[in-house]
Simulated assay, not measured.
Amino acid sequence: MKKKIIGLALTIAVVSALSTAAYASTYVNNEDVTSSVFTSSSNGYTLFPVRYLGEKLGCDVYWNPDDKCITVSKDDIHRDFYNGSAAVYDWEGNSYNLVTAPKLVDGNTMVPAEFYRDQFGISVIWDDVTSSLFINSENTYNWLVDTAEYKDAKKRKSQLTQDQARDRLYNAYDSTDQPYLKINDEGESSDYYYFFVLRYNDFTGYYVNWGDYKVNKNTGAVSKK
């Protein structure tokens, strides 16, 4: 039953990703935590409360109020860092750099998920098709990319838009003699956009159909219908 619920949620994610670029979901340990975790962003990375994400991933998180140092530990791996600094230190004297510096937001120390990837070997996958982040959720991600809905969404995301197809057709003509293009059929279920090519007839005062053309959504190739 749980797998069916996850599957339904991910299918909805695929559909939502097609309708709005703002859509985003976050999965941790194969669980959708989008509505239960506060996030922020920095330099293009999503930041999570270090304690929330750390404890979800089986880490211990400590705060030292004297030197304001945050320590994250799991088994024999220990990492120290400070808000505002991208530097991370282990207990052997080595230092590493985070992809973006942690920051304090509403009393929460926020870190990128990549901190756990780079320092603790946790899988972090960003999926551009659904605008979703998968943290230690490879099983859910692998299931998702094998669905028919996802494959269809990925194909459509890589295709030309109608405006891009129109530009390809315009570019097939001399820049000083541009035709008027009218969409005939978006061809949503096919690999082509179809256009009427119309030119103005000065004698009659009407546009005349000069032919039907199609533009391949995948390659951009222009050809007569």
Rank of each mutant, 00 (worst) to 15 (best):
Leu144His: 04
Leu133Ile: 11
Asp174Phe: 05
Val105His: 07
Ala17Met: 08
Val33Ile: 15
Ser25Arg: 13
Tyr82Pro: 05
Asp76Leu: 05
Pro102Ile: 10
Trp210Asp: 13
Thr161Gly: 09
Asn136Gln: 15
Val33His: 08
Glu31Pro: 03
Val145Gly: 04
Ala101Glu: 14
Glu92Ile: 01
Asp75Phe: 10
Ser131Cys: 12
Tyr141Glu: 03
Gly107Ser: 07
Asp67Lys: 03
Asp106Tyr: 13
Asp75Glu: 15
Asp127Tyr: 08
Val37Ser: 03
Phe120Trp: 05
Ser41Val: 12
Glu55Pro: 06
Asp146Arg: 11
Tyr23His: 15
Leu104Asp: 12
Tyr62Phe: 13
Lys224Arg: 13
Gly93Ala: 02
Leu144Ala: 04
Cys69Gln: 13
Val72Met: 03
Ser190Phe: 13
Lys154Met: 13
Thr39Phe: 09
Arg166Ile: 02
Lys74Arg: 14
Val14Cys: 15
Ser189Gly: 14
Asp174Tyr: 09
Gln162Arg: 11
Lys3Arg: 02
Arg166Asp: 02
Ile125Ser: 08
Pro112Tyr: 10
Gly205Ile: 00
Leu10Ser: 04
Phe81Ser: 08
His78Ala: 01
Lys68Asn: 10
Tyr180Gly: 00
Ala172Pro: 02
Ser95Leu: 00
Cys59Ala: 14
Ser41Met: 09
Gly205His: 01
Leu98Cys: 05
Phe195Ile: 05
Thr39Lys: 11
Gly205Arg: 01
Phe115Asp: 01
Val50Ile: 15
Gly84Ile: 03
Ala87Ile: 15
Tyr206Thr: 00
Trp91Leu: 12
Asn94Lys: 10
Ser73Asn: 06
Tyr52Trp: 15
Val215Thr: 10
Val208His: 00
Val14Asn: 07
Arg51Met: 06
Glu31Leu: 09
Thr100Asp: 09
Val33Met: 06
His78Pro: 00
